[in-house]
């Protein structure tokens, strides 16, 4: 599978990564290589094989519906860049 510049830009945008336009050709090459490597899997006949949801052959453990956490806001917020009235502050985003 051959990627192009536009697809690399789109992937970067979806991942919210800023990339230098000068680096785009290299990303195109590297990502295309990775995809080509993985693409070999397409040669395997998977008809009748159920999709794998998880590599471990186990099922999810469940916990009881009990509140076990206490308020640790002060500690969590000590590492935040900006906090006010108990809220985390971030640059304004309105769609």
């Amino acid at each position: 599978m051959e990627l192009d510049d536009a697809e690399v830009k789109k992937i970067a945008h979806l991942a919210r990564l800023g990339i230098d336009p000068a680096d785009i050709p290299e990303y195109v090459r590297n990502l295309t290589d990775i995809l080509s490597f993985v693409e070999q899997l397409n040669k395997v006949d998977t008809a009748g094989v159920p999709p794998l949801a998880h590599p471990l052959d186990a099922s999810q453990r469940l916990r009881a519906d009990v509140v076990t956490e206490t308020d640790q806001r002060a500690e969590f917020q000590s590492g935040a860049p900006l906090v006010e009235d108990g809220l985390y502050l971030v640059p304004k985003v309105i769609e």
């Binding site: 009881a64 806001r73 917020q77």
Partner: peptide
């Protein structure tokens, strides 16, 4: 009060793992 019921899992801090609530199922 804001963020007093947001624990490490809810905040998505590194290294935490979600464990499913049986009651929800």
């Amino acid at each position: 009060q804001p963020n007093t019921q947001a624990c490490a899992v809810d905040l998505g801090l590194p290294g935490v793992l979600p464990v499913l609530n049986r009651e929800v199922i």
